[in-house]
Amino acid sequence: MWWRKLEEKIVYFMMLISVASLVALLLAVLLSIFIKGVPYISWEMISQTPRGGYYFGREGGVLNAIVGSLYLSTGAVLLSLAFSLPLSLAMNIHLRTRRKTVNRIRFVLDILWGIPSIVYGAFGFTLMIYLGIQASLLAGIITVGIFIMPIMVRGMDEVMKNVPVHLIESAFSVGSTRMEVAFRVMLRQTIPGIVTAILLAFGRGIGDVASVLFTTGYTDNLPTSITQQTATLPLAVFFQLGSPIPEVQNRAYASAIILTVIILIISISVRMISKKYHKII
């Protein structure tokens, strides 16, 4: 029996190593950004727009990018939601009897999920030319909206798929229509999962550079209209890091911290929402 114990120890040890290296990696990433960026975090950084241009200017902040990113991601999430929610409900209620069709849709969504965001950026760019839209908040919202849709749909689909068949059947058995089952039962039952999927998609959207690179443009001003160019945090990091001026490079790290904190807040709220929900149920 000694080898069984040994086996158990080895597996345990391997688990320990992988958990430890994951945590170490996370800390290393966070620390490297925080050490470089924290000295440059200031109230000015998050409350003002840049002065002297984002590329050369050493004054002001990145409020334009913070606001731009929030607008962009919110817009993209709303756009994506308008398609994702009906699609995932249809996949799990209306198309219930067509398992093959649903699995094909899932397959396509998984492929879309795997496509790198730069491809969505290029697609968005082509679409803009085709529709005759300039680089703008709107173009960015459309591109990011398409980019995060597979993530959102599959996130929602995954929770809806796991709703017990009995529950759906009993809702039908009292004479509900498919719409009633979808909105009064399925939606209620899966709300926390849906919120999680939305926040996950939001996090992916707000952190992505490649999809906004050609589509939103960049500006030092706060966005005032969806037809105008807008700054975003990932691009703020990208451009400032590319500046030859060391102070501007440091501001890139500060911007990265801001972006990271926004994403951390989202991730933590996802956790809290699902925990709280489990308590109610």
């Binding site: 009995h166 529950l167 059947e169 058995s173 009292v174 004479g175 509900s176 209620r188 039952q189």
Partner: peptide
């Protein structure tokens, strides 16, 4: 849906809907 309303189904395991006791009955 109207045909189904002529029959009440009780399945092997209870399947309360994700809402209050009141609303479960009020649902129908």
């Amino acid at each position: 849906a109207l045909v189904r309303q002529k029959m009440g189904l009780l399945s092997q395991r209870p399947t309360p809907l994700p809402m209050s006791i009141f609303n479960n009955v009020a649902y129908g």
